[in-house]
Design a protein around this nucleic acid. Sequence first.
DNA 1: TATTGTTATACTCTATAACTATA
DNA 2: TATAGTTATAGAGTATAACAATA
Lengths: 148, 148
Amino acid sequence: MAAPSTDRLGFLLSFRGELTSARIRAALGVAGLHPRNVMTLMRLAPGAMSQRELAAAMEIDPSQLVAVLNELESEGLAERRRDPADRRRHIVEITEAGAAVLGRVDAAVGEAERELFGDLTEAEQALLRSLLDRVVVDAADHDCGGAE
Amino acid sequence: MAAPSTDRLGFLLSFRGELTSARIRAALGVAGLHPRNVMTLMRLAPGAMSQRELAAAMEIDPSQLVAVLNELESEGLAERRRDPADRRRHIVEITEAGAAVLGRVDAAVGEAERELFGDLTEAEQALLRSLLDRVVVDAADHDCGGAE
DNA sequence: TATTGTTATACTCTATAACTATA
DNA sequence: TATAGTTATAGAGTATAACAATA
């Protein structure tokens, strides 16, 4: 849906964020993976963890994570193995192939950022970052009814 | 899904945009309407137009607009009438009640923006706006496959 | 035959709850 | 009984195609 009153800063930030998000998602898809699967690999890159921990870190429901890991595992990009200490748990780990994919993705995201922010100097990019960091987005509950 | 590498400016802008969008949508819902319906009223505020024009302006499919207008009309916030010059067309118009709703919404959005950007001075808000305006988001086609 | 608005259908996402196997 | 992971189901949202009325 196109912007109706981009003269409001809130709308401007929302719409630019959405378009930026679309460009980044396209970059994440460079290896033919779903962006969500790539985000999962990114989470796993620093180290292995249980599915429950991974779901919590990504703020998604554990049941949604199942399909993601099925796909990643079938493509050889991540592995699940039982935790010997507690056989209910799965330890999830990124594979070498998964890490290699992340390398390609990182290059594509870098390219996307050069396109997105290429008209800004390094200093201006740093300034934009610091201003965005000061936007207050701590989700106080502002649900006002809505929908029908 | 939470941020995996907010150290990249593209991710930061995406995630701040998403959270800002959520806060703005909550404000749009202040009158109990679906945000999409409020956006439609905003488009109609400057003047009446046909459904086809309205759909084009909002960049949505005409068929999706039908349900929105049904709801707005049943709530007395907008009206459809046949164009006498071309009886295929519907002229869509906001009502006084619809304009009144927009007044309440505008106040709520103003409040949301004060929360979001209250830590920034007026000058900093203007700076943020000008930097966002220079982010390049003209959708060149970057579809790289993705999904499965 | 082309266009406007409408309806119907299908596909994706997401949220939730029920189920299994372990503890 | 409680927890980790899985499966199944339902709902919202969206995209597409077929349709009726009018040009």
